[in-house]
């Protein structure tokens, strides 16, 4: 479902060129739960941006659902993100002082889904993310960290994406809450067959996945199944 062929990404700062990725190739099948691991500066964030259609590779090909993403324009990339990708960020990025439901339906607003269906799908997604129904009409600033990240997960689920990308999703949570969030990802993968890619630098986090891709200095160092 995901296929990366020899992807490189080069950043230019004035005269200095910096290769964030140097020929990365791998495949991820539908229903996989993968961790991309690496220390900071390893290029894992750059890889996530490319996988999330936020950026395009300098050279190489990236196929998502058979479609070549590497050559698309900004608006076409936005279209891909809208229909095929759900993001979960370390900093949650919920809209401040806005209700849980409104936050969850936001991707559907941009997708042009009508109001009744939005509410329905938002409730299903919030339940799948494990948030109690009592919180649905609360404002985002009235929730705990764990609850906020569940709303963010629900927001990532709501447009029924092919791929969920979670960038350090437990980085801002205490270990106990982080564990609960990771369990939620596990459950979504196991019970709903969601394809999930988790970007992290912590081994404790990566442990929850079934396959770990290690990246170092812009290259894949190791790609192995967990356990």
């Amino acid at each position: 479902m995901i296929e990366c062929q020899n992807i490189t990404k080069t950043y230019k700062t004035g005269e200095v060129e910096f290769n964030a990725l140097e020929g990365v190739s791998f495949k991820i099948e539908r229903g996989e739960f993968v961790a991309i691991m690496g220390p900071s500066g390893s290029g894992k964030s750059t890889l996530m941006h490319i996988l999330g259609a936020l950026d395009t590779p300098t050279t190489g090909q990236y196929f998502l659902d058979g479609q070549n993403i590497s050559l698309l324009s900004d608006d076409e990339l936005a279209e891909i993100r809208k229909n095929k990708i759900g993001f979960v960020f370390q900093a949650f990025n919920l809209l401040a002082r806005t209700s849980v439901l409104r936050n969850t339906v936001l991707p559907l607003v941009y997708a042009g889904i009508n109001k009744n269906e939005r509410a329905l799908r938002a409730e299903i997604a919030l339940k799948a993310a494990g948030l109690d129904e009592v919180h649905f009409n609360h404002l985002s600033n009235q929730l705990s960290g764990g609850q906020i990240q569940r709303v963010a997960i629900a927001r990532a689920l709501v447009n029924n994406p092919s791929l969920i990308l979670a960038d350090e999703p437990t980085g801002n949570l205490d270990s106990k809450t982080g564990e609960i969030v990771l369990k939620t990802f596990e459950k979504l993968n196991r019970e709903e067959g969601r394809t999930i890619i988790l970007i992290t630098h912590e081994h404790d986090v990566a442990r929850h996945t079934r396959r770990i891709i290690h990246i170092k200095d812009g290259k894949i160092e190791d790609d192995s199944n967990n356990q």
């Binding site: 936020l54 608006d75 936005a78 993100r81 993001f87 990025n93």
Partner: peptide, 16 residues
């Protein structure tokens, strides 16, 4: 800025 980034990440186009 962060909110704009988020909106773009979840599929908002420039014109949105």
């Amino acid at each position: 800025t962060r909110e704009i980034g988020l909106r773009k990440a979840i599929g908002a186009t420039k014109s949105d």
